[in-house]
Design a protein around this nucleic acid. Structure first.
Lengths: 186, 186
DNA sequence: CGCCCTCTTGACTGGTCGGTCAACTAGGTC
DNA sequence: GACCTAGTTGACCGACCAGTCAAGAGGGCG
């Protein structure tokens, strides 16, 4: 059934977020997903392949949320919503699913690195589009601002994770960056 | 001798940067540091203790660099210098030593998380001081801007690592953030 | 019924992991 | 010389790791 594969990916997504990639063993994972080892390797050639599938799962979820968000501030809101949902589910900020995996694996698993890079590229493109439609202050380039917003999102999330700060603080930082670059801070 | 302990920490710092914490085994490490396992455990109670020592090593290096940097733009320059040095040494952006370890371990090793959080706190305090002496645009709070700069640094480094971009791009993002919040962009 | 195919089961493997240990060396001190 | 301490050596440990595999279950289809 499709169900088993999905259970595996969803369990992995949860466990990679609350622990880390390396600290989750295939056996742990199979127990959590109520699946046996052989089944796991029926669906995935390796643990690394699973990581890519987890990225795809999160990317699909993010795509859905971002499609609804119109305007720069809505992007900040979408990030805050997602992080807030994680916070509620896990009791703390657990980091960005992409950023976490990228930070841990991008030096050792180039395929995953490229996979995450593609997510960031798509994300940035959408930000550029939103920037182009916003009333930016003179001299502010949409591409430059989009990259700054993406970095701000990743940085705020990482710092909130390390400091155990609430998701609301993440959103505040992103909004402040946006308003600093608009003609009429809204 | 003191030399052995130092060789271990320096090797670990290098290997954690170019690979990751989990992917470096104690045996790998001992080989690289030309030390035997027993010696390692003479100096460190566990691998986790080593991680803290590595953070301390990097923190000392950063403190030295930052002490010289006067003014907000100098901070951006200091970050660029450090990342540029890593880039030259390793042939690519390998990430922030603190951010990398924090991202990988802060959910599973609370002591390390606190250790890195302290580094960020000190770093931020210095940024606040620099912001207070800078001609900020009206309505910009030094504390808020300092947190944004810290997040921008971490985010830019992480994204550069994932995308394999040069260190110069990191500096550009940080400088753009600063100039967007100054009265007279320099 | 027999055949195929997808999915499942769980025992198994070889290797690596972090960590332990008892024996040893080398200086310093009295 | 006797003793202490700091550092070194490398064999050793049990646990766990990612990954394998042969056997089977069960549904669809002729």
């Amino acid at each position: 059934m499709v169900v088993s594969r999905e259970r595996i990916v969803r369990s992995a997504a949860k466990m990679f977020l609350t622990r880390s990639y390396a600290s989750v063993g295939i056996s742990d994972l199979c127990t959590a997903a109520d699946v046996h080892k052989g089944s796991f390797y029926h669906f995935f050639a390796s643990k690394a392949e699973l990581a890519k599938a987890v990225v795809d799962l999160h990317a699909a979820e993010f795509d859905r949320r971002f499609a609804e968000a119109k305007g720069l501030y809505a992007v900040a809101g979408a990030v805050a919503d997602v992080q807030g949902a994680f916070e509620e589910k896990f009791g703390r900020i657990v980091g960005c699913p992409f950023g976490n995996l990228a930070a841990e694996l991008s030096t050792t698993d180039d395929e995953l690195r490229v996979h995450v890079a593609a997510v960031f590229d798509r994300w940035e493109k959408r930000l550029v589009a939103a920037c182009e439609q916003a009333p930016l202050r003179d001299g502010v380039e949409p591409e430059q601002l989009a990259r700054m917003i993406l970095a701000q999102i990743q940085g705020q999330i990482l710092i909130a994770k390390v400091r155990l700060r609430p998701a609301t603080e993440i959103a505040a930082g992103i909004r402040a960056l946006i308003s600093a670059n608009l003609k009429e801070p809204g």
